[in-house]
Structure formats: C-alpha cells, structure tokens
Simulated scan of single mutants.
Amino acid sequence: MKLITAIIRPHKLEDVRSNLDKIGISGISITEIKGYGKQKGHIENYRGNEYLIDYIPKLKVEIAVNDCDVQKVVDSIIEAAKTGQTGDGKIFIKNLEEVIRIRTNERGEKAL
C-alpha cells in the first residue's frame, strides 16, 4: 500500500477530484497549506501598496491506495493539475506499513 501526497494549486482541486472519481478513487483528504518552491512568492497590490507574498496558498491532497493503483492515480493527478507553469506542485509517494479501519477493525488493503 502507498500514501500519495500531491501538492496542487487550489483552483485545480475539482479537476483532480473529478479525475480520481473517474478511475474509482473516492477517499481523499485535503489540507490547506502555504509554501514556496521555485516560485519564490509574488507581489500583490492592495489599496495602492505593494506587498510581497512569500508563501503561496496550495492544497495538500492525500490518498491511500493499493500498490496496483499508484500509477493510474499519479497519471490522473498530473493530467488534472498540470498547467505547464512553475508552481504546478509535486507528488510524493510513501510506503504504508498498515491501514486500519476504526469502525470494523479491518486491516491492510481491506481497510482502504
């Protein structure tokens, strides 16, 4: 089992969710985050004053999947989240030792 973590632009969430629904992935967790990478922030104007925004708002999408589903989930996220510009985000894939469904105490792939 794997945990896929995708950092994406906020306005791409519905596209990502829709693509994941199409391939049968229904369980995702979303966290609002801020950060920066190569973008290094940007300047915004507010009431005639310029402000440097160091940290860009992003969303962290987490999905636990079976090993056999990893590539189709990654491909689906890339297809939906890619704009071709700096700041599109990143995808991280980590091994999951165990998953336990609290309600039924099911473990492993059955708990996904």
Rank of each mutant, 00 (worst) to 15 (best):
M1C: 11
M1G: 10
M1H: 08
K2D: 08
K2M: 07
L3R: 15
L3V: 14
I4M: 08
T5N: 09
T5Q: 13
I7D: 11
I8P: 10
R9H: 04
P10V: 09
H11T: 11
L13R: 12
E14I: 03
E14R: 06
D15E: 09
D15F: 02
V16Q: 10
S18Q: 05
N19A: 06
N19P: 00
L20S: 04
L20Q: 04
K22M: 01
K22Q: 06
K22S: 11
I23V: 14
I23S: 06
G24L: 01
G27H: 03
I28E: 04
I28P: 02
S29N: 10
S29Q: 09
T31H: 04
E32H: 07
K34C: 05
G35C: 07
Y36D: 03
G37M: 02
G37E: 00
G37K: 06
Q39M: 07
K40V: 00
G41E: 00
H42D: 01
H42N: 05
I43G: 03
I43C: 06
E44S: 15
N45P: 01
N45H: 12
Y46M: 14
Y46N: 14
R47F: 03
R47H: 10
G48L: 13
N49H: 14
N49S: 13
N49Q: 15
E50P: 03
Y55K: 08
I56F: 02
K58Q: 13
L59A: 13
L59T: 12
L59K: 14
V61T: 03
V61Q: 12
I63V: 14
I63Y: 02
A64C: 09
N66E: 12
D69K: 15
D69R: 14
V70L: 05
Q71G: 00
K72A: 04
K72Q: 01
K72V: 14
K72L: 05
V73T: 07
V73H: 01
V74T: 11
D75Y: 08
S76D: 00
S76N: 05
I78V: 14
E79R: 10
A80P: 03
T83I: 02
G84R: 03
G84H: 00
G84V: 02
G84D: 01
Q85S: 05
T86Q: 01
T86C: 07
T86S: 08
T86K: 02
G87W: 00
G87F: 00
D88G: 05
D88P: 10
I91N: 04
I91V: 12
I93N: 12
I93C: 13
K94Q: 13
L96Y: 04
E97F: 10
V99H: 01
V99M: 10
V99T: 10
I100Y: 06
I100F: 04
R101E: 12
R101Q: 11
T104F: 04
T104P: 05
N105F: 10
N105K: 15
E106L: 14
E106K: 15
R107M: 12
R107Q: 13
R107F: 02
E109D: 15
K110G: 08
A111L: 09
A111W: 07
